[in-house]
Design a protein around this nucleic acid. Structure first.
Length: 468
DNA sequence: TTGGGG
């Protein structure tokens, strides 16, 4: 009897636990992967995590934790943290071995990973009782973890430039910002140094007046000092949280940290890419020395070091086969719209490669108002969107004087990548999604009010000619 | 008891 009590307390290596089906065991391991709480069809909430130790570094053991509410589930701060389970039951579920945490008799304790020094858990379940024995195991795991590299097996991780709509994208990215974008609506901003593919635009230009194409997915524009912390090259993907899981996601997404997402959902909204963390998304262990992280940094460093005038052009505009514009200032290097947004002076001139994703007004006959060109264009590159105006003599230069409405319509259609048709009354209507071509343009920024130069900053296209 | 579905 005495020995059974002792056995109860002893940690089992994962290698031994997986052949102890239907037995109650105690385990301690490093969290290699975890997902976010979901309500089960029964009475409980569930979160699943995968633990590894030296005896079983891959693929790890799944532990399913059932608890009566989200609060009682483990709130994991980071993959790589250490978790201890007492009295979990080894089980076979759908042909796979796993450990099941039973709220009636199991307990857990969560500790910092390899960078931790303390033996005080940061979260424990009510039934947990600490013992001296735990410390030695925590120290051992922390030591082992220093040289541990996770084995990704055959899992495929997409670059930002490979994302497409659907569920189940795996990505390695750096968190560049996390904020409460609106009340109770949190958003993470992630980046891997590559450019997302331009998305088709499905909104109608005739709605542009009342419902303009958004410049960003966050409800309010950022203060400039936040933008200034964003990378200048590569797409920053906005990531939303599936309702109710923010609380368990947020603390594991810290700015500056590289993360691996498994099963990130990808949507397009207003022609902008959006990631969604769902209850089926998992976070996987990674370090700054991870091969996949190093690979992304190499790709980015290579982009940054390119010396050509076109070094910062969008990946998908290369090699700019459709030259629809000609610009003066040919010897000036191209910049990104994030360069433009974060430039240190209000008054400046730039050259960029962008797509025109919207125009207001959209009807060619309204481009000229009281004899003067006045059009607001929405410009996009992989880093940002801005409004830029085509005004007066700059419009004249752009459209080559004052051509007939038919010629203007044709040029607009090319510029915006749009098809039009006529309705039963001969009225022009838009036909289908738009896929605008890339164009080079010169941009100048200026202010409207000297008393508030940053608050009234505007952009205009200049020295640019449409040649279609 | 509960447990991703295709």
């Amino acid at each position: 009897m005495r020995s059974r009590v002792r056995d109860d307390y002893k940690f089992m290596e994962i290698r031994d636990a997986i052949v102890s089906i239907n037995q109650k065991v105690s385990l301690i391991g490093v969290i290699a992967e975890f997902d976010f709480p979901k309500q089960t069809r029964g009475t409980d909430c569930l979160c699943t995590l995968k633990i590894v130790d030296e005896s079983h570094p891959k693929p790890g053991l799944e532990v399913r934790v059932f608890e009566e509410n989200v609060e009682k589930l483990p709130h994991i701060l980071s993959t790589g943290d250490i978790i201890q389970f007492n009295h979990v039951v080894m089980n076979i579920f759908r042909g796979e071995v796993c450990a099941v945490y039973n709220k009636k008799f199991s307990s857990f304790a969560l500790y910092d990973g390899k960078d931790g020094e303390a033996f005080l858990p940061y979260q424990v379940s009510p039934k947990f009782r600490p013992r001296d024995l735990d410390k030695a195991f925590i120290t051992g795991l922390r030591k082992w973890l220093v040289s541990f590299q996770i084995d990704e097996g055959s899992d495929n991780f997409s670059l930002m430039r490979e994302i497409k709509e659907g569920e189940g994208i795996n990505m390695v990215c750096k968190i560049v910002h996390v904020c409460e974008a609106a009340k109770d609506k949190w958003m993470a901003f992630v980046w891997d140094g590559t450019d997302a593919r331009p998305a088709s635009i499905f909104t109608r230009l005739k709605d542009e007046g009342d419902h303009p194409l958004p410049l960003h997915l966050e409800p309010l524009p950022f203060p400039r000092d936040v933008f200034c912390t964003f990378p200048l090259l590569g797409t920053v993907l906005r990531v939303n949280f599936y309702q109710g899981i923010e609380k368990s996601c947020l603390h594991s997404l810290n700015s500056g940290k590289w993360v691996k997402f498994i099963n990130l959902a990808i949507e397009v909204d207003g022609g902008l890419w959006r990631g969604v963390l769902t209850p089926f998304t998992k976070l996987r262990y990674t370090t700054n020395e991870d091969n996949l992280v190093l690979e992304r940094q190499r790709i980015y460093d290579l982009r940054l070091s390119a010396k050509s005038l076109l070094a910062r052009i969008p990946f998908f505009s290369f090699p700019l086969t459709s030259q629809i514009t000609e610009v003066d200032h040919k010897d000036v290097p191209c910049l990104t719209l994030m360069d433009v947004l974060t430039y240190s002076k209000v008054t400046a001139k730039f050259k960029c490669v962008v797509r025109v994703v919207a125009a207001f007004p959209w009807q060619a006959e309204n481009f000229i108002y009281r004899g003067t060109y006045r059009i607001r264009l929405t410009l996009e590159d992989p880093t940002a969107r801005i409004h830029a105006y085509l005004y007066a003599e700059d419009g004249e230069k752009f459209f080559g004087g004052y051509p007939s409405v038919d010629v203007l319509k044709r040029r607009r259609n090319v510029l915006l990548g749009m098809a039009t048709a006529s309705d039963d009354y001969g009225k022009e209507v838009e036909d289908g999604a738009r896929n605008p071509p890339w164009m080079q343009c010169c941009l100048k920024s200026y202010y409207l009010s000297k008393s508030d130069p940053w608050g009234t900053r505007n952009y205009r296209i200049f020295d640019t000619m449409l040649v279609v």
